[in-house]
Design a binder for these strands. Structure first.
Lengths: 138, 138
DNA sequence: CTGCATCCCGCTCGATACTG
DNA sequence: CAGTATCGAGCGGGATGCAG
């Protein structure tokens, strides 16, 4: 396990920021991805996450530990060393993330296009229709 | 379309409130589900959503309309009538919701169990290990 | 290195009241 | 019926500083 984590694996320019799916808290899903290849240390996790504050990362990790998604192992060394590793339950989230990625690949462009269309043409917003007497289409 | 919506289709007692997956904003996923059987009116949607405030529901619907997930059709009648209907893109979210449900069915109990265990036994929290010299078991 | 404490900001969500 | 307007509370989340 493991090559160092790519600092840009969560490039903020990537339109995934507009993705309508989220796993747990803001960072939970990304932490899962970071731990895919094996155990990681605290500071190691901070790199690809765009320099999350220690406080927030701790909160996230504690919550995930509490929910049985990962295990925390502290080694009584100097300097201190702590490793986080996914549990079976945590790895089970991969299927979900895969589904989210598949959806994004197939449909996110359409969503972004619709969004862009609304921003450029806020001129045709409220369409009113005379009440159709009957037999509505569809 | 459509029997009236079950007011308890999102029973807050259901543990899905602990589900680590979310579609868009807080209410987006539930709106999608409410529109599964066909077009619905504004007030009709408010019922199963636990009486969401009109303001919040409007925000949600506007955002979804902007993203091309649903269409808004206002009929110039008296009293006014507006119907919301999923687009193809909106319906594409069903696969995602299905994946989330499958995960919940298979793994949510384990998550809840882990959570309960931590609440009842906060006594074994910080396990420290003497640094293992080498060859850590995976 | 790890991670807790404190302060604070912004955003989401909600309650209430009012309009076409 | 279908919203809009205004106000406010709560909370996630970030900055900074400090401790084991």
């Amino acid at each position: 396990m493991a090559n160092p984590l790519d600092p840009e694996m969560f490039d903020p320019i990537c339109p995934s920021s507009a993705m309508p799916i989220q796993i747990g808290d803001k960072w939970t899903g990304m932490v899962v991805l970071c731990l895919e290849e094996g155990p990681r240390r605290f500071t190691e996790l901070r790199v690809p996450l765009g320099g999350v504050t220690p406080k927030v990362l701790t909160q996230t990790l504690r919550a995930m530990e509490r929910d049985g998604l990962l295990t925390r192992t502290a080694y009584d060394e100097n300097p201190p060393r702590v490793e986080y590793e996914l549990t079976e339950l945590g790895r089970s989230l991969f299927s979900l993330i895969a589904a989210a990625r598949a959806w994004s690949r197939d449909h996110l462009p359409a969503l972004l296009a619709a969004r862009a269309a609304h921003e450029s043409a806020p001129a045709a917003p409220r369409l009113l229709r005379r009440s159709p007497p009957s037999g509505p289409g569809r």
